[in-house]
Design a protein around this nucleic acid. Sequence first.
DNA 1: GTTAATTTTAAGGATTTTATAAGGAAGAAG
DNA 2: CTTCTTCCTTATAAAATCCTTAAAATTAAC
Lengths: 224, 224
Amino acid sequence: MPKLLVIDDDLDMLALVRTALEKEGYQVDTEANAASLQPARCRLYDLLLLDVMMPGEDGFSFCRRIRTEVDCPILFLTAKAEDSALVQGFGLGADDYIKKPFSIAELRARVSAHLRREVRQPTHILRRGNVRFDIQAKTAYAGEHTLPFTKGEYAICEHLALHAGQVFTKEQLYEAVFGFDAEGDPSAVAEHIKNIRAKLKAHGICPIDTIWGVGYKWQKSEDL
Amino acid sequence: MPKLLVIDDDLDMLALVRTALEKEGYQVDTEANAASLQPARCRLYDLLLLDVMMPGEDGFSFCRRIRTEVDCPILFLTAKAEDSALVQGFGLGADDYIKKPFSIAELRARVSAHLRREVRQPTHILRRGNVRFDIQAKTAYAGEHTLPFTKGEYAICEHLALHAGQVFTKEQLYEAVFGFDAEGDPSAVAEHIKNIRAKLKAHGICPIDTIWGVGYKWQKSEDL
DNA sequence: GTTAATTTTAAGGATTTTATAAGGAAGAAG
DNA sequence: CTTCTTCCTTATAAAATCCTTAAAATTAAC
């Protein structure tokens, strides 16, 4: 279920867009003010919809500010119909420019097209609820905050999340993470699990279940 | 130099579009008839521009026929302004739908945006917070001051900044910078990192993180 | 309710990895 | 030839992680 962020100062417009896109099955968040939004927040989403003319920071300025740090498609949604504005928008790194008034059908079709193209590209982001793993960067995030995992903690945590719902014994976890031959004391894994849980709990989430007498598993969403 | 294919039965339109896009530096081929075009031919191009209403095979039919075999962006360029046609176009896997009459500026902007996303081409100037890299001049700046990097230091630093957020081992960094066969002592890289950090710290910035047990990475903004 | 097994927690030391500093080799510039 | 810069190596100090151990808490079984 892709996550979208819509930024517009017009609350009616926000409600309209949100309704239309939620009907498509997307998870939609809205913001009325761009100025306070940091790139880290935007990176939580799969696509951004931006109004251009807003009090405070306008859409162009916002796009310029975050573009180098945010990879997802950025779509302008605006009443500025002049070519110069459109060219400026694309020049700032936008992926589409939809002129108001637009039809709901067009909005949905364009959003869908951009998301479709994203998934065509190999992704290195694993999302499990509020926790995201950047496989390449070997970094985990809780919301917009980086989780300060050590190497071993990250490896164990990623392995559990990647195979969500599957139970692993301590020995299996140790082998999966540090290699076959590795002979790990099971209690070493327990120590790592403890630290992982502590760092996750700091953000109010505890997605790792203990299966008594067996091992650990990452919760599947239906277990919540 | 990206290669584009434009398909339209209107020869004046073909000439207009070709001229506009060749001015951008693209290599443009044109076809007046879609029916004879095979997917293999289309795979030669980086982007397709398609008219919808054509004698013989129309644009929608053509798109449906080749989409599963052709990965590049497909843009419709059409006088059919109805929402239903637009939705149908996107539904067939198109990436954009430009309504006639369109401005040359808009055409260029949209084509450029789609190619940019495909290739994700970096610009000559890379900005990461307060640090800027001039890729061509191989020079880095902190604010207005030039950073006195040596050649090797610059190469390592640029590589980290270019892939901000991604972790590289010392070996990977050495290879990326000095070539595949290079067998570098990891500690040589550590020495360079030390010097790079010292020069950045002189301007009050320290954007390179150590990922213990893995390597180094350029911070993404959320890590600050 | 009691017991036994298992997990959680906490603390310490061992190990691994990185940071720092100093010295030398190779090459460019004067 | 000398001088300088850059790069690499080596050695040592510092830091962080990992593992071990043991006690406390929890869970399951009787």
